[in-house]
């Protein structure tokens, strides 16, 4: 993708990536030496791998032209290196004894950009992960997919507007949860923090998803009895309004199948596989609620001061958590921004 095209795309949608995909690969200092006779290169490599393997640096090649990577610097001095190799049974007479210290990649690079940088320092193996590459170069979505994401965000904006204009909410914030498998809106949410400080739009939307699974804790509307898809996650008034405004969109969740031993469930579980479209960046509480709910992707329009998906921190990239979702920002940014004037 050309640079100009990419910049244009960055204005429409931008992934919020984990720091280890954005930052340079960390480096480590190693000792290197030169090999006296080019003909012995393969022997030196073989012997050295046998006597002094470096399990931490398997992503690096041992050889760079006539130079050979000996060992990680640790606490050794240059003068001690050959002594150390000898004590491990390596024939040091094959080397020139011109020990130098160089910095090399401490861990395997994750993206092409990272690889290009560390490969200059020392030859480095790299297995490109196509998906990560698409994410890190912001080429995951094609034009029609972006239009689809924008459409769902426009629904979220409509929900936000509706809630404020009808004096249901004090802040115009909207959330739409979509099941991408059936391309259907499962649940909606808007902020009712004046009622309860934890009732942020994403929390309401999560609870409304639960209603489509015979659950939910906050009963705030008469649930629609349903036809083919389950409409329990959508406020009836909003349903009528949105159906008119967005006739091309499908509403409702897949039928929920209760779990029993006889009938194993293949229906929805929490928000697994669902995509979340939020006009505003979720706070830390909501970001973690979305982790617990196992959503697939979160799209938001504008950053918030207390945001947990890029502003204050990146809850979705915390390594030790058992579930991770992808996050994209800037979707319909200007329209979401203008919600503050509603």
């Amino acid at each position: 993708m050309s640079c100009a095209k990419k910049i244009k795309l960055d204005e429409k949608i931008l992934p919020i990536l984990a720091d280890d995909l954005l930052e340079d690969t960390p480096l480590v200092e190693v000792f290197v030496d030169s090999i006296k006779d080019q003909k012995t290169i393969s022997k030196v490599v073989k012997d050295l791998n046998a006597s002094c393997p470096i399990p931490e640096l398997t992503h690096l090649k041992r050889i760079k032209a006539k130079e050979i990577l000996l060992l990680i610097k640790n606490n050794l001095e240059k003068q001690q290196v050959h002594e150390y190799l000898k004590s491990n049974g390596f024939n040091v007479s094959l080397l020139c004894n011109q020990i130098r210290i160089v910095s090399v990649a401490k861990i395997a690079p994750k993206t092409k950009t990272q690889h290009a940088k560390v490969n200059q320092l020392w030859p480095c193996n790299f297995h490109s992960d196509k998906y990560i590459e698409k994410l890190s170069t912001n080429t995951l979505f094609d034009h029609s997919e972006i239009l689809e994401h924008q459409l769902y965000m426009k629904v979220a904006i409509e929900v936000a507007r509706y809630s404020k204009q009808n004096k249901i909410a004090h802040f115009s914030k909207g959330v739409v949860i979509v099941d991408p498998k059936i391309k259907s809106i499962v649940a909606l949410g808007y902020s009712v923090t004046h009622e309860n400080p934890c009732k942020h739009a994403p929390m309401i939307a999560i609870d409304n998803v639960a209603k489509t699974q015979n659950g939910g804790a906050w009963n705030n509307y008469e649930q629609l009895t349903t036809t083919k898809l389950n409409l329990c996650g959508i406020h009836p008034k909003l349903y009528t309004l949105l159906q008119e405004k967005f006739p091309q969109i499908t509403f409702g969740a897949s039928r929920f199948k209760g779990k029993s031993i006889k009938e194993p469930s293949d229906g929805p579980y929490l928000c697994t596989g669902y995509c979340v479209y939020s006009t505003h960046e979720p706070c830390i509480m909501c970001a973690m609620a979305l982790v617990h709910s196992r959503v697939k992707r979160v799209f938001y329009g504008v950053k918030t001061n207390n945001g947990g998906l890029g502003t204050l921190c990146k809850v979705h990239t915390v390594k030790d958590l058992n579930h991770h979702y992808e996050v994209f920002t800037k979707l319909c940014q200007d329209e979401c921004e203008s919600l503050k004037d509603v």
Binding site: G215, L270, S293
Partner: peptide
Amino acid sequence: NEVNETKSATRHAEMICIDQIV
């Protein structure tokens, strides 16, 4: 905890208490 009962992963004991205080 009422997560399984409510099918909502947010219904932790603390959140339930918060609602009661409100």
